[in-house]
Computed example of a mutant assay.
Amino acid sequence: MTATETSDLLASCYCGAVSLHCEAKPKSVIHYHCQQCRRLSGAAFTTWLSLPREATVISGATNLQQFAASENGLRHFCKQCGTHVFTEDKRLPGILGVPAGILSTPLTSKPSGHYFFSDKADWSFCHDDLPKFGGASGFERIDV
Rank of each mutant, 00 (worst) to 15 (best):
L107K: 08
V98C: 11
L103Y: 14
A61L: 11
T108D: 10
T108G: 10
S109G: 06
N72P: 01
F77P: 00
G60A: 03
S59L: 13
L92C: 05
S104K: 07
N63A: 02
L103M: 12
S70A: 01
A68N: 04
P93Q: 02
D89L: 09
R91P: 07
F86L: 14
G82Y: 14
P52I: 07
S50Y: 12
C78A: 09
C78M: 11
A55K: 12
A61K: 15
S70L: 00
E71C: 06
T47H: 04
H84T: 11
T87W: 03
W48V: 08
S59P: 08
F86W: 08
A100N: 11
L92M: 09
L49I: 12
L51V: 02
T46A: 05
G82W: 14
V85C: 02
S50C: 11
P52A: 14
G82M: 14
W48Q: 10
G97K: 10
A61E: 13
S104L: 01
T47V: 08
K90Y: 01
V57E: 14
Q65N: 09
L51F: 02
A100I: 15
A69W: 02
F86S: 00
T46Y: 01
E54K: 10
L49Q: 04
L96W: 11
V85A: 03
E88W: 03
E71L: 06
K110V: 15
L92P: 02
F77S: 05
T46I: 10
P99F: 13
H114E: 11
T108F: 12
Y115F: 14
L51M: 06
L96G: 01
F77C: 06
I102H: 06
T87S: 08
T83F: 00
H84S: 12
A61Y: 09
F77V: 07
C78W: 07
Q80P: 00
V98P: 00
A55E: 09
T56M: 08
S109N: 11
N63G: 03
H114V: 09
E54L: 12
Q66H: 06
F77Q: 06
H84C: 08
K90R: 11
E71H: 13
L92A: 11
K110S: 14
A55V: 05
L96V: 02
H84W: 12
G97L: 15
P111T: 04
F67C: 05
V98I: 13
V98G: 02
S50M: 12
Q65Y: 04
E71P: 05
A69K: 10
F86G: 00
S59A: 14
P52N: 09
E88R: 05
F77N: 04
S112G: 12
T56P: 00
E71I: 07
T56K: 05
R53I: 02
T87R: 04
H84A: 13
S109E: 14
K90S: 15
S50P: 12
I58V: 15
I102C: 10
T46Q: 09
S59C: 12
P52W: 05
Q66F: 01
L103S: 15
L96A: 07
I102Q: 04
G60P: 00
S70M: 00
A55G: 06
T83M: 03
Y115N: 06
S70D: 03
W48G: 03
F86Y: 14
E71A: 13
L64F: 01
L51E: 00
S70Y: 03
G94F: 04
L107G: 05
T46R: 08
G97M: 15
S104E: 03
T105G: 05
I102N: 04
A100F: 14
V98S: 03
Y115M: 06
S112D: 10
